Amino acid sequence: MQRLLSGVGVLGVGLATVGAAINSTLYNVDGGERAVLFDRFRGVLPTVSGEGTHFLIPWVQLPIIYSVRSTPRSIPVTTGSKDLQNVNITLRILFRPHEQKLPWLYANIGQDYDEKILPSITTEVLKAVVAQFDASELITQREVVSEKVQELLMERGNSFGLILDDISITHLTFGREFTEAVEMKQVAQQEAERARFLVEKAEQVKQANIIRSEGDSIAAKMLAEAFVKAGDGLIELRRLEAAEEIATALSQSRNVAYLPGSGQNLLLSIPPN
């Protein structure tokens, strides 16, 4: 019985050893990943392993796993414009490695290729593009700037085995001096607009006064001509109209009483209490 149990134990140990040996010859590549094999005798192998389970030589070959999904990264850069203004730009990049160039990437740059490549080429391209535009043009021609940056950056990324799926400018500001100068310019423009409005208003008032004076002059001339033609009759008419207005105003006053007389109206003024 003891011999049987001993034999079973030895068999179990043997199976475990065989299972461990088999597992050491396999490696898995998950979805969205690719693998590069490093051989201790031959170096980095040129083949790239896709998704699934693959074989390797234990203790001789080592799998290096890379993600080939698009990965976002924001890179801030400070550079100068054509008119020597400081410009702060943040570029957002969606990148992934070219699958066929993964062996070259691992052999020459390493697994942290994005840390070594992207900041360098982004700074280089942004400095070259921004230096072609004035500070005001960077704002008014932002689409043109973005297209130039995208074209040059994709070309530079491709030379390092990177595929840039999307490039966009997410942040664009200028130095404190330029910002203050722009604000002062806006204030000056607003003051100029206000001054222009006041000048136009004064001109309109002047024109209105001229027209009013001309109207009064014409009215006075017509009134004088009417006096000459009508004689004392027009003067008497104006006197009666004035007397009627005075009588109406007095009759509506609380301190004046109306007394009937012999054919004439009498207005009695009563002093206030």
Rank of each mutant, 00 (worst) to 15 (best):
Q2R: 14
S6D: 12
S6I: 12
G9L: 04
G12Y: 08
A16I: 11
T17Y: 11
I22T: 12
S24P: 08
N28M: 12
D30S: 05
D30P: 09
G31Y: 00
R34Q: 15
F41Y: 13
R42E: 14
S49Q: 09
P58N: 03
W59F: 03
W59Y: 01
P63Q: 00
V68R: 03
T71D: 04
T71S: 09
I75N: 10
P76R: 06
P76Q: 02
P76N: 05
V77M: 14
S81W: 02
D83K: 13
L91K: 01
L94Y: 10
K101C: 03
P103D: 01
A107I: 01
P119Q: 01
A128P: 03
A131H: 04
Q141D: 07
E143C: 02
E143N: 06
Q150Y: 08
L153T: 00
F160P: 04
I167C: 15
S168G: 00
T170R: 14
T173L: 02
G175W: 09
V182P: 01
V182Q: 10
V182E: 07
K201E: 11
K201G: 11
V205I: 15
S213G: 05
E214L: 00
G215M: 13
K221N: 11
E225R: 07
V228K: 04
A242E: 12
E245W: 03
I246N: 07
L250G: 05
S251D: 08
S251H: 02
R254E: 12
Y258T: 11
L259R: 15
P260H: 06
Q264E: 06
N265Y: 00
L267W: 02
I270L: 15
